[in-house]
Nucleic acid binder design. Sequence first.
DNA 1: GCAGAGTGCTTGCTATAGCAAGCACTCCAG
DNA 2: CTGGAGTGCTTGCTATAGCAAGCACTCTGC
Lengths: 131, 131
Amino acid sequence: MAGSKVGSIGEYIRDQRQRAKISLRQLADAAGVSNPYLSQIERGLRKPSAEILQQIAKGLRISAEALYVQAGILEDRKADTDVQAAIRADLSLSERQKQVLLDIYESFRKENEGGVPAPADANDERKEAVE
Amino acid sequence: MAGSKVGSIGEYIRDQRQRAKISLRQLADAAGVSNPYLSQIERGLRKPSAEILQQIAKGLRISAEALYVQAGILEDRKADTDVQAAIRADLSLSERQKQVLLDIYESFRKENEGGVPAPADANDERKEAVE
DNA sequence: GCAGAGTGCTTGCTATAGCAAGCACTCCAG
DNA sequence: CTGGAGTGCTTGCTATAGCAAGCACTCTGC
């Protein structure tokens, strides 16, 4: 999907449907939503709920997440790193603690965008962080 | 969160709110939703849209995804990897950064020995770590 | 005691999501 | 030509999401 990340969900659905070479009614039937409503969604007249998006994704045989991203209700995340996935799934952490760790992890990665720093620099980093 | 992955979103929100030790109105204000509506959501009388869940997540300072998972609109992605192993193996972090993250992770887990704690504690931890 | 602050909930309303019934059109076979 | 199948859209309706106004309660200070 070239262009903006959060575009018109309706246009995106129509595009995917046309790529799949199925009619509006065929998709509506496969998705279990009414065909007039799907038409309205595609033309931007209605704003579908996440549940409807889930059904449409099923009918299109694509991930619901892809539609959520287009609809602006989910961040477009490239595959989680192992660290991120592990933190999210860790049952010994509260939701808030997970968010804190993820934020710190992310800020560390930003610092390292020019490369992983030498151990001497990392020393200073630790002192700041621990204090 | 032991037990079913997709439970009552209302109970979950109330639980997170009570862990954060904030009143219903405080969360409603922080989230930008009406307090009666939040009350209805917590009691399972209404079914909030993804947009409202997003706002509530912001007010609770947790990820929207966590609420989506509870609401059944997003799959809970499993991670087979352990947090500690993942941090150690992450090539985008320096060794010192890894240690910092591991220390924080460890201290979070220590705090949680009697159970998953109130997020207010995690708040303090974050301030220390970033400074 | 009363007033004020804070709490969670009730109630009635508006806007709109999502549907069913059906229209208008195109295409093709008999 | 007509009828049938398929297409996308219009229209009017119902159910409900989400809100504002306000109630009933608890607690505290004067």
